[in-house]
Amino acid sequence: MSNLTHLDSQGHAHMVDVSEKDITTRVAHAEAFVEMMPETLALITQGKHKKGDVLAVARIAGIQAAKKCSDLIPLCHPLMLTKVGVDLIPEVELNRVRIRTICKLNGRTGVEMEALCAASVAALTLYDMCKAVDRGMTINGLRVMEKQGGKSGHWQADQTPAGHA
């Protein structure tokens, strides 16, 4: 394993200096899942939840989270994102909502943390809006699915959905 970049030679945390890195197009995709009772998913997909359009609110929350990532994660660089996308896909047969995010920019550092923040906050918002009817919901499978750009180039995760062998 390589050295941790957020620690200096004395082991003190610091923000990584990216000023010498090349500006490249950087893209990251992340996903998460919110599992719930079939009745809860039906309320969401049929638009019958008393709090309104749960998926629309979660989408906006995810977009906002990506934009605020550096305020939430210590040592994260503030970034000028050029694209943030949040898709919430009901998977009725699995009693869950799959959350897929994308973040993109032309810059000196990657956007994996922004994509992860978007997915996690979208999932938390979905939970918050539905907890009154289903306190047993679970959030799982949060991970980076793909990243592009920078010196390390392209990386893609195993495409097997989280929780499935």
Rank of each mutant, 00 (worst) to 15 (best):
G153E: 10
E146L: 14
I89S: 06
G149Q: 00
D17I: 08
L41H: 03
A118T: 07
G153Q: 13
H164S: 11
Q156V: 15
Y127F: 15
A157F: 05
C69R: 03
C117T: 13
I139G: 06
T125D: 02
H6L: 15
P161W: 02
E146P: 01
A162F: 12
V86F: 00
R96Q: 13
R143M: 10
K67M: 12
L41Q: 02
G47R: 04
K48F: 07
V84E: 00
V97N: 00
E35F: 04
S152M: 09
A28C: 07
I102H: 04
G110E: 03
F33N: 04
H6C: 11
G150M: 06
A132H: 08
L105C: 08
E112A: 02
T40Q: 00
A13G: 10
S19W: 04
I102R: 14
I73L: 11
A61C: 10
G110R: 03
M113I: 13
N95A: 13
H12I: 01
H164A: 10
H12V: 06
E20M: 08
T82P: 00
E112L: 02
H14E: 07
Q148T: 11
C69S: 15
Q46G: 09
R135M: 09
H164L: 14
V86A: 03
T40M: 08
L7H: 09
L75Q: 08
T25H: 12
I44P: 00
S19A: 13
M36P: 01
C103Q: 04
S9M: 06
R59Q: 15
P74Y: 07
V121S: 02
G62I: 02
